[in-house]
Design a protein around this nucleic acid. Structure first.
Lengths: 137, 137
DNA sequence: AGAATAGCTTGCAATTTGCAAGTGACTTGA
DNA sequence: TCAAGTCACTTGCAAATTGCAAGCTATTCT
């Protein structure tokens, strides 16, 4: 099981934020509230890119901005991330109603399809389940 | 997403080895070939136990040995680990035939049931798919 | 032009890791 | 029964990684 490039807490959170919160820029990750230091963030973004999990490209309308995006390999992590969200919601006290978690588990396939659609169509809105933001789970 | 206790490469590998290779003792993890240092191994085992993911108990027939085992919370990580194996097999060059990986993906539910049965019944044999050891994927 | 913003880099102290060696409680074989 | 393992760690120490604050460069806004 080759976990290089992944297998670090920050890398996982970056992938999650790209996938579910529809984050794209350095600044968004920096201010996500998880408290990652900028040097570590820069390092992890480089690492994820080097491992082909994300790609970086300059923004068309603002040359200062870099847009990060999951690659095909990256979006293929969706099942892992979703199962991790469900596990975490069930076992760690995240203050989320069980109903929402169980709904995610029940509609797993539909949710995965939705995650992939949002990626394909570059939908910039965060993923919702049952009217609430998924990353709060 | 509370990832404390997990979210570290070694922790994940320990959980994988408990779940799929049916490892139980310190010595087995140490010699698994991944090259973990004994101080780190001891620390991770403590951490996983503190987070309720594994439990440790003295062996009945040999008082030197400690048997580690996944808890209910730990075995609930099975979907995550299985998806990670599948992802890794597809995207990282692990030298495994695609056929075996795709078979795992197709028979996901059956495999999960088998993993859980082995845990419940304390089956000490490593998990196989298609006649080969799963952790080689 | 001056101020603000985006995405970093740098320096440095503090924490964590990797490696080798050692420890103490058991078990095994002669 | 006693020496020689085995098992699960612990310890000491150098090296690598992290966290924090500050700074830097290229844009963009006013």
């Amino acid at each position: 099981m080759a976990l290089d490039g992944l297998g670090d807490r920050w890398s996982l959170l970056i992938v999650r934020d790209l996938m579910i919160r529809a984050y794209r820029t350095f600044r968004e990750f920096e201010e996500s509230g998880e408290g990652i230091a900028t040097n570590i963030l820069a390092d992890r973004l480089r690492r994820l890119e080097r491992h082909g999990i994300i790609s970086a490209e300059a923004d068309a309308s603002d040359a200062r901005k870099v847009n990060y995006r999951l690659t095909e390999k990256g979006i293929d992590l969706a099942p892992v991330l979703l199962d991790l969200l469900i596990w975490s919601g069930r076992h760690e006290q995240t203050g989320t109603p069980c109903a929402a978690i169980e709904q995610m588990a029940r509609h797993r396939e539909a949710l995965l399809a939705e995650v992939r659609r949002r990626w394909r169509e570059r939908d910039p809105s965060p993923l919702q389940v049952d009217g609430r933001w998924v990353w709060q789970l």
